[in-house]
Simulated scan of single mutants.
Amino acid sequence: MRDSSIRRRSRTASAPRPVRRRSRTVTAALSVVAFIGVAASAGCDAGPAGTAKGPSAEQRRAAAGPLWGRSPASIAAVGDSITRGFDACSVLVDCPEVSWATGTDSGVRSLAVRLLGPARAATHSWNHATTGARIAQLPEQMALAAKDRPELVTVMIGANDACRDSADIMTPVENFRALFEASMRQLRGAAPNAQVYVSSVPDLMRLWSTGRENALGKQIWKLGLCKSMLGDADDLGPAAVARRALVQERVVAYNEVLRDVCAKDRRCRYDGGAVFDYRFTGEQLSQWDWFHPGRDGQARLAEIAYRKVTAADPPA
């Protein structure tokens, strides 16, 4: 009996201890800790001494939602005679009620009417464009627009910078760029969250080739309208051809500036050259000067703007 008892105690002493199992609660807690650690290392940068920083600025902006709203509730317009509706209703007179941007005319159905509805367009849109304006006047117009606290600002400028008495005095491209950048800074200083829709400068070469088919239009052009492009409309000699080509090159350069500067602002959308590329005919031109858009032309500009402003993605 004694020997067997000793043997039993020996076997008991030498047997390995049973492995204790972790409770489900402990295991789950460790899994959560591990998951949090992986997520933190993937989504945040490491700060000093290994501490984790919060989301990056880019992540915070993305979380705040899209920067381009497709249904702004108020609109301010800046630019030149096209946006004022000059010569669209009668000769040598502004007609802002048919403006493509902020007009109230039911036939044109401006961008404001399409976005806000007729009643709200009359009270929540403002037109600060001025006939004859060049890019040099744009900073002041932007300052006025900013005071309205609009959700969207439309810009159409540049035609008068190319339409001069001589191609030699067109606004230099570098000046055009500096002034457009200054205009955007002027707006951002007072209205940092306003969206900006920038129209391309119209195709002045097409304007010449289309308008010169009308005898009355050519007679009106002789009064001095956009002489750098439209002067001596029937002259097809080398000098005239070279002059028109120079003006067209300048318009293309202006549009490149508008595109480039706009691309640097996250709340700015350029039309992708849609207005420049539009194949307008004499039906879209003013019957008083064959230069400015008439009612039909204003309506086409409104259609283009509405399409670009409400698109899910900016033009390529």
Rank of each mutant, 00 (worst) to 15 (best):
A15R: 15
E283K: 14
G50Q: 07
C226K: 05
P238G: 04
E256H: 15
A182W: 01
V257Y: 04
A40H: 02
Y197R: 07
T281K: 03
P96C: 05
A101G: 00
A121D: 06
R21S: 13
H292R: 03
V261P: 11
A316V: 11
R134L: 10
R300I: 12
G103M: 06
F180I: 11
S56V: 02
G85Q: 00
T51H: 10
G107A: 09
N127M: 04
L230D: 02
A159V: 09
R149S: 15
D234V: 05
R61D: 10
A133C: 07
G231I: 00
A194C: 08
S209M: 10
Y254G: 03
A159K: 03
H128Q: 12
R20S: 14
A112G: 02
E58K: 05
A112T: 02
A274F: 01
F280S: 08
R164P: 01
A119R: 06
R164E: 08
Q219L: 15
G69P: 05
A42N: 09
C268F: 07
A316R: 11
I157K: 00
L138S: 05
L246M: 15
R134S: 14
V38F: 12
V93Q: 07
R300E: 13
G54Q: 02
H292C: 02
E283M: 09
P55G: 01
A28W: 13
G224L: 01
A239Y: 04
A13F: 12
G132Y: 03
V309H: 06
Q59T: 10
I135M: 13
R134M: 14
M142P: 02
K222W: 08
A29W: 14
A64P: 08
E213P: 03
P96I: 04
